[in-house]
Structure formats: C-alpha cells, structure tokens
Simulated assay, not measured.
Amino acid sequence: MFAHLSALLGGLVTSAIGGWGWFLGPLIIWLLKKDTMPFVADQAKESLNFNITVTAIFLALMILGFITLGIGFVIALPLMFVVGIAALVLIIMAAVKANDGVRYRYPFTIRLIK
C-alpha cells in the first residue's frame, strides 16, 4: 500500500520544483524490498512503472505545448488535468487493493521494469 501512496507523497513534496518525484517513493521501496518481500516488490514495481508512464505522458504534453509556441497548451492543459485526476483515482484504487492483499495491475501502463 505504501508503494502506491508514496507516489502521491513524492509528487506533493516535489510539487514546488515541477512535481517530478512521483516515481521516487515506489523506486525506493522497490529497491529496499525487492529481495525480501515479493508482494511488496511486485506492487512497488507496478507503481513505479505506472508513475514513469504518467511522467512520460506529462513530459510529452509539455513538449507539445512548447513546440507549438504555446498553442498546444490549449489541448495539453486539459489533458494534463484529466490524466492527473485519472492517476489519482488509480493510485487510490491500487492502494486499497494492495492493502487487501490483492495484486493490482494499472491499466495503460508501459512496463519498463520487469
């Protein structure tokens, strides 16, 4: 559960400098527990992959906005809002499932860490 919720904490803590810390909490938990606790390692890895995917989406939308000299932000900002709300809901759902001992798989996730 903490692997999923630490993504929210990382985003809040680093929000003053762009909010890039979404993946720091899951990364730390995965690195610490990958050899000792298989369930925790699995959920931390899942959370890490999801948050890397969300960060990549936000980065792509920011690049779209800058490349189009700001015009792309008309599309990018509402999409960022929708992706942010969806990520929040999915992270909370994952934390609840993990707390119940159920493995949660995020939809639309690029699984870079196997």
Rank of each mutant, 00 (worst) to 15 (best):
F23I: 14
F23R: 13
L24V: 15
L24I: 15
G25C: 02
G25A: 05
G25H: 04
G25W: 08
G25I: 04
G25K: 01
P26W: 03
P26Q: 05
P26C: 00
P26D: 00
L27C: 06
L27V: 02
L27S: 01
I28T: 03
I28E: 02
I28M: 03
I28S: 01
I28Y: 04
I29S: 00
I29E: 00
W30T: 00
W30S: 00
L31E: 07
L31R: 06
L31I: 08
L31T: 14
L32G: 02
L32P: 02
L32V: 12
L32F: 08
K33C: 07
K33R: 14
K33G: 00
K33Y: 12
K33Q: 07
K34E: 00
D35G: 08
D35V: 05
D35F: 14
D35P: 08
T36Q: 13
T36K: 14
T36V: 12
M37S: 14
M37F: 10
P38L: 10
P38M: 04
P38Q: 05
P38C: 06
P38D: 01
F39T: 02
F39P: 00
F39Y: 09
V40T: 13
V40W: 11
V40Q: 10
A41Y: 04
A41S: 11
A41I: 02
A41G: 03
A41E: 02
A41L: 01
D42E: 15
D42W: 13
Q43S: 04
Q43T: 00
A44I: 01
E46H: 09
E46S: 09
E46A: 10
E46N: 12
S47L: 05
L48R: 10
L48H: 08
N49Q: 10
N49T: 04
F50C: 07
F50K: 12
N51C: 02
N51V: 04
N51S: 01
I52D: 03
I52C: 09
I52S: 10
T53E: 02
T53Q: 07
T53D: 05
T53H: 05
V54L: 06
V54I: 14
T55F: 11
A56P: 07
A56E: 02
I57H: 14
F58M: 10
L59V: 15
L59M: 15
A60K: 10
A60S: 15
A60I: 15
A60H: 10
L61P: 04
L61Q: 12
M62S: 13
I63V: 13
I63W: 14
L64Y: 08
G65I: 11
G65F: 08
F66I: 13
F66D: 15
F66E: 09
F66V: 14
I67A: 14
I67W: 14
T68C: 08
T68S: 15
G70C: 08
G70L: 06
G70W: 13
G70S: 13
I71K: 13
G72L: 14
G72Y: 09
G72P: 03
V74H: 07
V74C: 08
